Amino acid sequence: MIDLNVDEWTQEEFLRNKQVLEEKGVKVLLIDTILNPIDGAQTTLYAPPLLKAEPSGSVFVFYCDTGKSSKERLGEFRAKFPNHVCISLRGGRGYWRKNLRI
């Protein structure tokens, strides 16, 4: 069972949970808050009007360079997107390993 009531996911948790959740029909998006996409990963630019249009229950995993700012802003993200699950990517873009596969 995937715990969606957490503040952070590691890259490995993100990749594993995304696979399981999407098999169940839940959309999982990696959200770029710094205008700097991650090489080898499908990212979505942080654009609140577009994100609000995503299906209710979708999981948004926000990232910044180090993971610190996105974690600190979780309260803001959760207030802005009450119908979605908001999580921060631990370590952010800096800890992303492009060769890590699940």
Rank of each mutant, 00 (worst) to 15 (best):
K68Q: 14
F14L: 07
G40N: 02
E22K: 11
L50V: 10
R90I: 05
D39V: 08
K27E: 13
N36P: 02
N36V: 05
S88D: 08
E54T: 15
A41D: 12
E22M: 12
F62D: 04
L74E: 01
V28H: 02
L29G: 05
L100P: 08
V26Q: 01
L50Y: 09
L89C: 11
R78Y: 01
G75I: 02
I34M: 01
E12T: 13
G67W: 08
R101P: 11
I31N: 01
G92L: 04
G92H: 11
E54F: 00
P82T: 07
G92C: 09
A47W: 12
L35M: 12
P48C: 02
Q11G: 09
R16I: 12
F77I: 02
A41N: 06
Q19C: 14
M1W: 01
R93N: 12
T43P: 10
Y46I: 10
P48V: 02
V26N: 02
K68L: 15
N83V: 05
P48W: 01
I31M: 01
A41Q: 08
G40F: 02
V28C: 05
E23R: 15
E54A: 09
E54M: 07
G25M: 02
L74V: 07
L100R: 13
G94V: 00
K71G: 13
L51P: 14
F62I: 14
T43H: 05
G94A: 13
T43F: 03
D39M: 03
D7T: 10
E13C: 03
L15R: 13
T44S: 01
F81V: 00
L50W: 06
P82R: 08
S69V: 10
R78M: 05
R73D: 08
V6R: 08
G92I: 05
A41R: 06
L51G: 06
K68E: 13
D7P: 04
E76C: 03
L30C: 06
P49K: 09
E72V: 06
E22A: 03
E13L: 10
E8Q: 15
N83T: 10
R78D: 01
V61L: 04
L45C: 12
V85Q: 03
I38D: 05
L89E: 06
L74Q: 06
L74A: 06
L100I: 11
N36T: 13
I102M: 13
R97S: 15
D39A: 11
N5H: 15
